[in-house]
């Protein structure tokens, strides 16, 4: 096939003011503007969004899924970062 394939874009949508953009899927488009236009048609046909980000998929650098246990282990061992770690006597409120 001589045709050059359109690059892949990851699509993020803000559903309303006050919420962050959230990944909803991906699509192919020749450039960023058309990726936004296509994302509007594909992912917001029922008022799902008021703002769209697109990021070329090959620009996403992700943590390694196979190393996840070791990578996130340091935070799992620090239970004192959670409020439930601490003893509070019965009858104490607003804390």
């Amino acid at each position: 096939m001589s045709e050059q394939e359109w690059p892949l874009w990851e699509v993020f949508i803000r559903s309303k003011q006050g919420l962050n953009h959230k990944h909803v899927g991906s699509l192919r488009a020749p450039d960023a503007q058309l990726a936004v236009d296509n994302a509007r048609d594909v992912y917001t046909r029922r008022s799902e969004g008021i703002s769209i980000w697109v990021v070329a998929s090959n620009n996403v650098f992700a943590s390694d899924a196979s190393e996840a246990d070791a990578f996130y282990d340091p935070s799992n061992s620090k239970v004192y970062r959670h409020p439930t770690f601490y003893d509070v006597p019965d009858g104490i409120s607003h804390m």
Binding site: M1, E3, E5, G25, S26, L27, D41
Partner: peptide, 26 residues
């Protein structure tokens, strides 16, 4: 128009598995 969108969501899902969309269409 919805059916076209559904096709697109699904082809995108195959691409997350390493499939080539153009090959699937071929």
């Amino acid at each position: 128009q919805d059916e076209a969108g559904h096709g697109l969501y699904l082809y995108s899902a195959t691409e997350t598995l390493g499939a080539d969309r153009e090959e699937l269409i071929d």
